[in-house]
């Protein structure tokens, strides 16, 4: 017997109140500054670029965590580089003066002398 058998979809109609849409004059959530930037990989098995909107005040560690998933690269295997500066994971993008349209490079953590 399937467990779905008991389910009945036509028992009662749920009437949902009509949703009234209204665009507020001002956003009610006090949003922090966001920047729209291009992430470009230099590592990994293919060259990739993604345009992403990120919070300028978020820790770069957090951004790496998410971007790492999008690019398929573990966060401890790359640094984020902006305008030639390697960004500290404890800082935020606003510390580096990142602006809309800027490019951020995912560069290798190549510290081995091998």
């Amino acid at each position: 017997m399937s467990e779905f058998e008991d389910l009945s979809f036509d028992e009662e109609e749920v009437v949902v109140d009509q949703i009234k849409t209204k665009t507020p004059a001002k956003s009610k959530t006090p949003a922090g500054k966001k920047v729209s930037v291009y992430f470009q990989s230099t590592i990994g098995p293919n060259q990739k670029q993604e345009k992403l909107v990120v919070a300028a005040d978020a820790p770069i560690r957090d951004i790496k965590y998410t971007v790492g998933q999008i690019f398929g690269i573990p966060p401890d295997e790359f640094h984020v580089s902006h305008a030639g500066r390697t960004c500290d994971p404890d800082d935020s993008l606003s510390n580096y003066g990142v602006e809309d349209g800027d490019s951020l490079l995912l560069i290798p953590v190549s510290t081995a002398g091998a």
């Binding site: 230099t42 590592i43 295997e77 560069i107 290798p108 953590v109 190549s110 510290t111 081995a112 002398g113 091998a114």
Partner: peptide, 8 residues
């Protein structure tokens, strides 16, 4: 420096 298949 190198790491896996990359270097600088």
């Amino acid at each position: 420096g190198t790491t896996t298949y990359y270097g600088h």
